[in-house]
Write a protein that binds this DNA or RNA. Structure first.
Length: 474
RNA sequence: GGCCCCAUGGUCUAGCGGUUAGGACAUCGCCCUUUCAAGGCGGUAACACGGGUUCGAAUCCCGUUGGGGCUACCA
């Protein structure tokens, strides 16, 4: 029956916080399935929790969605573009549906006080269970759950589900202030928006029978459900801030690529054979709910880092350079915009040594004509007086080198070493510390070439005086 | 407590009755090498347990254990 309807999916976050990885993955699966099926993807903001919902979170969520590359298709016209739907702008819909249920005696008003001890394990019995409470006005509206029978529905991941009505209480549809609860608003909207596939977290599985009851009471066809496994922390508890970064915004600020995030997230709870590295387009080409597992997945920061490093290498050099530009500026490094090729080249020397963009830019510092970030301990060991004649000789040769490029530079280093009867490393390592301030760096000849003759000689001189002063002092 | 879901190496997973149980991350070793990485090659490491069903179970069924979720006028 669902097959006759055009596929329509949605992601329905509530703006009570930033978009976290769990929500992002739910959004990703919905988006990927919608695209795969050639259907429609809708974004709906579930802002019915007036206490916790905030506008900044709405903006942050939209921002994160766009950054990840998850675009939505429809919604109220917002300056020419399709904005998301907001439940607080649709209160009439829920009230009308509520009145319908009330009129047909499928719901009733309840004036018993709100129960406050939800945390205690012992169930609180509401006097409404007697189903005789009624008040012409005020109070909350409760659904009249059938005393007997089974609620059944299809879950594309878990199979046919069946719950006894007797286990379900008379849940609230409308709060006393007229605002709908999650279960009610979600159903009215999913039905009204003709959603065909409800893909959401496993934590909603227990809510589904209640929702199916509402669909039936309202006379709507039920969609197919797909409850995807939760994402846990290393301690197998629900993933939260205490486990580390969890919001998409945080990962973005830390310098992760959206490609790495969507790639890694897709592989949490979903697999397609041995496929590990892929972009959104490649994901859409093969995505299916059949590949989604049932067991909860532990978020692995190490594997995310691996995916990130892999994407750093996968991105076209030019593209990576463009994305890095703002990071260089933020770091206060004097990027010469008229030397895009040089920038691109120096970035590439750092790609195999970096994970995040922030990480890469930090390591790029020595390539610029700014004070060196000296690793004093290392330089103290390497830049000793014995090294002075070596670096002095090296500087002389480099000063007159005809062609300033890696191969001739390497030749100069090696020739000098053999003439002095020492190992190449005995020249290279002191030079490395002199040019970069540390003992670990990209290839020395590439570094010198990118640094340019002037800066190279300047750094060599600076090191020589540094050693001399050190000797005088020591 | 009640109800529900889940269970392959440390982690993400492939497997959909017959496989030397495959891949990836991590880890260990070797190679490459001017350092650090990256890369290449190789190693250690898993079917939670107990019963069935079957000629044959990681695969199907039932228990046990373990983990997760729901049980709000939160979503």
């Amino acid at each position: 029956m669902q097959t006759m309807r055009a596929p329509r999916l949605r992601f329905a976050p509530s703006p009570t916080g930033y978009l976290h990885v769990g929500g992002a993955r739910t959004a990703l699966f919905n988006w990927a399935l919608a695209r795969r099926l050639g259907g429609t993807f809708i974004l709906r903001i579930e802002d019915t929790d007036r206490q916790r919902s905030e506008q900044v979170y709405v903006e942050a969520i939209l921002d994160a969605m766009r950054w990840l590359g998850l675009d939505w298709d429809e919604g109220p016209d917002v300056g020419g573009a399709a904005g998301p739907y907001f439940q607080m702008e649709r209160l009439d819909l829920y009230r009308r549906a509520a009145e319908d249920l009330l009129a047909r005696n499928l719901a009733y008003r309840c004036i018993c006080p709100a129960r406050e001890d939800a945390e205690t394990s012992s169930p609180v019995t509401c006097s409404c269970a007697a189903r005789t409470v009624s008040a012409s006005e005020g109070g909350a509206l409760r659904f009249r759950t059938p005393a007997e029978g089974q609620v059944t529905f299809l879950d594309l991941i878990h199979g046919d589900m069946s719950f006894p009505c007797a286990d379900l209480e008379d849940f609230v549809l409308l709060k006393a202030d007229g605002v709908p609860t999650y279960n009610f608003a979600a159903v009215v909207d999913d039905a009204g928006m003709q959603i065909t596939h409800v893909v959401r977290g496993d934590d909603h599985l227990s809510n589904t029978p209640k929702q199916v009851l509402i669909y039936q009471a309202l006379g709507y066809e039920t969609p197919a459900f797909a409850h995807i496994p939760m994402i846990l922390g290393p301690d197998r508890k629900r993933l939260s801030k205490r486990h580390g970064a969890v919001s998409i915004q945080q990962f973005r600020e830390d310098g992760y690529l959206p490609e790495a995030l969507t790639n890694y997230l897709a592989r949490l709870g979903w697999a397609h054979g041995d496929m590990e590295l892929f972009d959104l387009e490649e994901l859409v080409a093969v995505f299916s709910l059949e590949g989604v597992g049932k067991a909860p997945a532990v978020f692995d920061y190490d594997k995310l880092a691996w995916a990130q490093a892999a994407w750093l290498k996968r991105l076209p050099p030019q593209e990576l350079r463009d994305r890095l530009l703002p990071w260089f500026e933020a770091a206060g490094l004097p990027v010469a915009v008229d030397e895009p090729a040089r920038l691109e080249a120096l970035i590439q020397t750092l790609v195999p040594r970096s994970v995040t963009l922030d990480d890469l830019v930090r390591q790029a510092r020595f390539y610029f004509d700014v004070p060196l970030d000296w690793d004093e301990e290392a330089s103290g060991k390497v830049l000793v007086s014995a090294v002075v004649p070596i670096l002095r000789a090296l500087a002389e040769r480099l000063a007159t080198l005809a062609d300033w490029s890696p191969a001739p530079i390497e030749d100069a280093f090696r020739t000098l070493a053999s003439e002095l009867g020492i190992k190449a490393g005995a020249v290279i390592q002191p030079a490395r510390v002199a040019l970069t301030g540390r003992t670990a760096s990209p290839g020395m000849f590439e570094v010198a070439a990118l640094l340019g003759r002037d800066l190279t000689l300047k750094r060599l001189e600076a090191s020589l005086s540094k050693v001399t002063e050190g000797v005088l002092q020591g």
